[in-house]
């Protein structure tokens, strides 16, 4: 693998991580829910794309049109049924954080258990547009190129929605200060439910994108949650541009490590980055205030 190929592969992986992390940063930054079952939502969407492609013959790009609204609705349901009662009863943010961590940790095992019953524990994949394409002298598979374009396209759309519309401004206001947002007439419970659902939609899109070029298993959710969390912290909680940049960095580092060192050491590299961020800038590379 030449350096150029490795760099492009790293960007593809990083774009996917960025997409996943943007959803998580919405859920944690706006809805204030630390969602440990996030990676399992990604894996669920990957299996959904697999089923759509295999059983119904719907290609994953069209599958996004089904999976993303599905993820949105699932996220909305999870928030209103399971998490909203916890938000209502929590006297302060610390209690809510512990409660949401515990509840979503339980949810993780439920989702994982259902996936294991349905699909077993083997590595799963499908072939989609696995034809070589030449980019800047490097050869990569067409599906990876599409994955990168989709990740960047969805990420930029979301960024524009949040920064250029009235509705996005309201969401960002809740992220900055829930109390003050209420004073200017923003319904923070609705905003939180919406942000959580949006995060679910982004998790689904990340899952579909990942399934186009990677193998996945029912138990792989933990690693995706972990990487998304590290990207969120690296980028600064609630910061979309930060998540995008941090995601690309993580993807590049991982691909370089697996190309030039050993594929078995990618998670170690991820943790090394996390450790460096914790010791050097716990508020994130692009974060301003300490939480």
């Amino acid at each position: 693998m030449t350096l150029m190929t490795a760099l492009i592969a790293g960007l593809v992986l990083g774009g996917t991580y960025a997409l996943a992390a943007m959803g998580l940063t919405l859920q944690y930054g706006i809805a204030r829910i630390m969602n440990l079952a996030y990676g399992d939502m990604i894996i669920t969407a990957a299996f959904a794309a697999f089923v759509l492609q295999g059983a119904a013959g719907i290609n994953p790009i069209l599958g996004l049109l089904i999976a993303v609204p599905g993820g949105f609705l699932l996220g909305y349901a999870v928030y209103t049924v399971i998490l909203a009662p916890l938000v209502a009863r929590a006297p302060n943010r610390g209690v809510l954080e512990v409660d949401s961590i515990l509840t979503t940790f339980g949810l993780l095992f439920v989702v994982q258990g259902i996936l294991l019953v349905l699909f077993g524990s083997n590595y799963t994949s499908y072939t989609f547009l696995n034809e070589p394409v030449n980019v800047l002298g490097a050869t990569i598979a067409a599906n990876r190129l599409i994955a990168l374009i989709l990740a960047l396209g969805l990420g930029i759309t979301l960024y524009l929605l949040l920064t250029r519309t009235r509705w996005g401004t309201a969401l960002r206001a809740v992220a900055v200060s829930p109390q003050s947002a209420q004073l200017v007439g923003i319904d923070i419970n609705r905003a939180a439910a919406f942000a959580f659902a949006l995060g679910g939609g982004l998790a689904a899109s990340a899952g579909v994108v990942i399934s186009m070029y990677q193998t996945f298993t029912a138990t792989g959710g933990v690693v995706f949650t972990m990487k998304a969390l590290i990207v969120v912290i690296m980028g600064g909680v609630g910061n979309l541009v930060g998540a995008l940049a941090a995601g690309l960095i993580l993807g590049l580092v991982e691909t370089l490590v697996s190309t030039y060192a050993d594929p078995g050491l990618t998670l170690a590299a991820t943790y090394a980055i996390f450790l460096a961020v914790l010791l050097w800038r716990p508020q994130g590379l692009f974060g301003r205030a300490v939480r």
């Binding site: 515990l102 940790f105 339980g106 949810l107 095992f109 994982q112 259902i114």
Partner: peptide, 8 residues
């Protein structure tokens, strides 16, 4: 694991 998750 589903049952334990729900119980939890």
């Amino acid at each position: 694991s589903i049952i334990l998750g729900l119980l939890f």
